[in-house]
Design a protein around this nucleic acid. Sequence first.
DNA 1: GCCTTAATTGATAATGGTTATCATTTTCAA
DNA 2: TTGAAAATGATAACCATTATCAATTAAGGC
Lengths: 151, 151
Amino acid sequence: MRGPWWQDRLNDAGFRLTNPRELVLGILRETDKHLSAEDLYVKALQKNPSIGLTTVYRTLDLFTQIGIAQKFDFGDGKARYELANNPLKKAHHHHMVCLKCKSIIDYSDFMKEELELMKKTEKALSKKHKFKIMYHIIHFYGICNSCREGD
Amino acid sequence: MRGPWWQDRLNDAGFRLTNPRELVLGILRETDKHLSAEDLYVKALQKNPSIGLTTVYRTLDLFTQIGIAQKFDFGDGKARYELANNPLKKAHHHHMVCLKCKSIIDYSDFMKEELELMKKTEKALSKKHKFKIMYHIIHFYGICNSCREGD
DNA sequence: GCCTTAATTGATAATGGTTATCATTTTCAA
DNA sequence: TTGAAAATGATAACCATTATCAATTAAGGC
């Protein structure tokens, strides 16, 4: 019997869909933001006061490795996570990060062209390096408008 | 009087080209690897035993903000740095990162198409969001060949 | 050159996100 | 039901990075 895609993904990779994992997954599915491990832990506590921070970290790491979630680093010292196929998110998007204030802007311009190119590249790289690619990330780094004015 | 590009970049941004900065820059220019702050510090110590780790961090941050260097996070807990225009490096390249062992593969396939697309995107985003873009990053995340076999 | 002021530096301590450890609990299959 | 393996959670430890602050250095005006 096949379940929802994330369950299949877990099972196929040889892992169990446990309560804590389901909980974290549920939170990821409900938001359209980039949540940190701490963010997720706090939200998880509200639904299950016995969950541990370590488990949240472990779960996020697992999700990332099997392609359920994506891990981001925006340079502010803590990692952020997003569900890979988030129904609430604009289908596919990327990020612009301010090197000063670490603010993040999502954008989704030129996605069609970009997706094509990425798909092509991904295919070639997978083959060439025998690499199982889970996801890709594109970041533009620079200085945002308000930080420039502050000079 | 204009000096080399990095000096101009510093001056134009209102900063001085000091000894520690010149030292860090020299090390970045001599390598084709992704060095961590610690790596750079150790190398710097050999040439100037009085340099401080804090200064290395500060210098790298400064270089990143004014576009002399690029900062990378490959998920192993420490940031890496590369010179923006490194004569030793393959002109333009990107990275594939293993989510398990954190190994990094540089690649430079499809660079022509990619550069075109990025340039176009960059232009549009800069204008739309009044964002001064210093550099972009493309990462493919997945599981490398040897980590897959280890399953 | 000398002086003034601001920029820069470096030693140290503190911060804080993440991971290691390990005993306990849960899950799945026999 | 039962036993082995997987998963969990509390705690301690780790370690990259940043804050602090007194000391040093650089640049421009005189």
